[in-house]
Simulated scan of single mutants.
Amino acid sequence: MGEIRVGTASWTDKTLLESGWYPQTANTPEKRLGYYAKQFPIVEVDATYYGPPAEQTTRLWAERTPDGFTFNIKAFSMLTGHPTKVSAIYKDLRPETDKKNVYPGDVPPQTYEEIWTRFLSALDPLVEAGKLGALLFQFPPWWGIRRDNKDYLREVAARCKPLRPVFEFRNASWFDGDNAEETLSFLRRHELPLVCVDMPQGHKSSVPPLMAATADLAVVRFHGHSDKWTSKDIHEKFGYRYSEKELREWAPKLRALADEAQQTHVLMNNCAGDYAQRNATQLIELLD
């Protein structure tokens, strides 16, 4: 069985800081990251979706964590076709527009290329420290199975090489009927890692909890099962704490997935209060 690393999708969430999970001595960003890194071997950085990171910031992350610690980085929204706030774009690259949000087609090609270059370059300190895990590319609900979208997956892999992009879909067409095998075959043929998810079902963005390794790296993200999945309040959307029974049922599935990959990353994304941290700790104990 390959190595399994379990962590969470945040260590700075406001409700986590208010939950009491951190000891009172962890009263600075540096101390909180250091404390987190003693509890878990991996973390997913979601803030980079809302705004690209600065190289100075990633250098501090590398310096403040022990050898062997892993950061997975969520790709900036512009790179996954999501609407992106103009204010989130590098100041000197912002388009002159009255729009609050823009898409890749709304910026000049050279600007789009420069955003790619700066985003990847900012991760250099993590690469040099051996602490960069995967780059998470989570696509929007309208991004269905199409030839040009498959081509973009291959383009992303080429742009990121030798870094490892992993791909999370939020459109069920990738897994409807025979499409599931087509999707898995395509990803395996090109050694593109699928992000497996556990999430509420019955919504436009729902995809099934399909556990499959399509490369030497497997990633699983647990989003919870909140009955307020469509809420604009992110803490309502992800406000779900897994029971021990649920996690106990997941443990053998994760071990089976790890049998298919060299390394498996498991991230709890039910980030409301300390739910993710508590559940990640429980899952580690169950897997051990």
Rank of each mutant, 00 (worst) to 15 (best):
R5P: 01
S10L: 06
W11S: 13
E18V: 03
W21H: 11
P29W: 06
L33D: 00
L33S: 06
G34A: 15
Y35T: 02
K38C: 07
F40S: 01
I42C: 12
Y49S: 08
A54W: 10
E55Q: 15
R59G: 03
L60S: 10
L60R: 14
R64I: 00
F69L: 06
M78W: 00
M78K: 05
T80R: 06
T84H: 12
L93N: 09
L93E: 09
R94V: 12
E96Q: 13
K99V: 01
K99D: 14
K100M: 12
K100W: 04
N101S: 08
V102N: 11
P104C: 07
D106Q: 05
Q110G: 00
E114R: 12
R118A: 10
R118S: 10
S121L: 08
V127N: 08
L132R: 11
F139L: 14
P141L: 09
W142D: 13
N149L: 11
K150L: 15
Y152T: 11
R154A: 14
R164D: 00
P165V: 10
V166Y: 02
F167N: 09
F167S: 07
E168A: 05
E168P: 03
F169M: 15
N171H: 15
W174I: 09
F175L: 15
D178I: 04
A180Y: 03
F186N: 07
L187W: 06
E191P: 01
P193K: 10
D198P: 03
P200G: 10
Q201G: 03
G202L: 02
S206G: 01
L210I: 15
T214I: 02
I234S: 12
G239D: 10
G239W: 01
Y242I: 03
K245Q: 13
Q263H: 07
H265D: 07
L267G: 01
M268P: 05
C271A: 10
C271I: 14
G273P: 00
G273Y: 05
T281G: 10
L283I: 05
